[in-house]
């Protein structure tokens, strides 16, 4: 009986396993293979060694994506909180409004931001100014925040709306003012949502190439752009090496973050 069931299980799981091997595991091996070989296919460390030329790039990418993630959190947490505390009917409308821009293609949205923020663009015409925005770090961060904000808000919103409503009452009953209710109770309880929000914004931000190309006005090259350029120009091995290192960097960042959230579950409030 038990064996029969496990056969059924493997049959049911087979397409997914096949999919995962074909599109996740295999490509990973290909990336690793390319990263450690030269054009003739011989084993080499040269690709990885050449990465020291890209240190600054990694630094800049990290800087911009961390900043964008941070801004997303600053804007997203209060937004998620307000939505989660709104009456049930209005919550649906707010969430729809939040999702609405995502129905438009990312490229189109990014072009629109360009058109608005450009030197001779809509904003400058409106204000009758000559603000230079496109091509600054600020523009790139703005683009990232605009594009990825819903990924921050949604997990936090889900998390807060699942918290027992008596938590608010218990906290204020025991002496918390409105602000302390959030800092001492609700925020710690929504931490898992914050962690997944950060992950979901940080990962696409650090690897983006399109936003930085368009809103960076050609003055920026981020790690995503470099990878794209390597692959487009046929330098598969360098491209693979950079990709590999970036994946490892992301893994390390996520590992640190999970560690941080685990430590917080020990039960100490500061």
């Amino acid at each position: 009986m038990k064996k029969k069931r496990s056969i059924m299980h493997s049959i049911a799981a087979a397409p997914h396993i096949f999919w995962a091997i074909l599109f996740i595991v295999l490509p990973l091996f290909i990336v690793v293979f390319y990263a450690f070989t030269d054009e003739s296919g011989a084993f080499t460390f040269d690709n990885l060694a050449s990465l020291k030329n890209y240190t600054k790039l990694f630094g800049l990418s990290l800087e911009l994506s961390v900043l964008a993630t941070f801004v997303c959190f600053l804007v997203g947490y209060p937004l998620a909180y307000i939505i989660a505390r709104a009456p049930a009917k209005r919550q649906k409308i707010y969430i729809m409004l939040l999702m609405l821009p995502m129905w438009t293609n990312l490229l189109i949205r990014t072009y629109s931001i360009m058109a608005i923020l450009d030197d001779g663009g809509f904003l400058n015409q409106l204000l009758n100014t000559e603000l230079h925005i496109i091509g600054t770090k600020g523009a790139v961060i703005f683009g990232m925040v605009y594009d990825f904000l819903p990924y921050m808000v949604l997990p936090i919103y889900t998390c807060i709306s699942k918290i027992d409503k008596h938590m608010w009452e218990a906290a204020s009953d025991l002496g918390c003012n409105t602000f302390q209710v959030i800092t001492k109770v609700i925020f710690p309880l929504s931490l898992s949502g914050v962690i997944s929000g950060i992950t979901m914004v940080f990962v696409p931000s650090i690897s983006t190439f399109y936003i930085s190309q368009k809103l960076g006005g050609g003055t920026f090259e981020l790690i995503g752009d470099t990878i794209e350029r390597q692959f487009v120009s046929g330098a598969l091995n360098t491209g693979a090496a950079i990709s590999l290192v970036m994946m490892i960097l992301i893994l390390i960042s996520l590992g640190i973050m999970n560690k941080f959230s685990d430590a917080d579950e020990g039960g100490i409030i500061v």
């Binding site: 027992d164 008596h166 938590m167 009452e169 218990a170 906290a171 009953d173 025991l174 109770v185 710690p188 309880l189 931490l191 917080d264 579950e265 020990g266 039960g267 409030i269």
Partner: peptide, 15 residues
């Protein structure tokens, strides 16, 4: 005035 809630409302993130 303090309250003991019906479903206790203990803080799950604290021991």
């Amino acid at each position: 005035v303090n309250t003991v809630f019906q479903k206790y409302a203990l803080f799950p993130h604290l021991n």
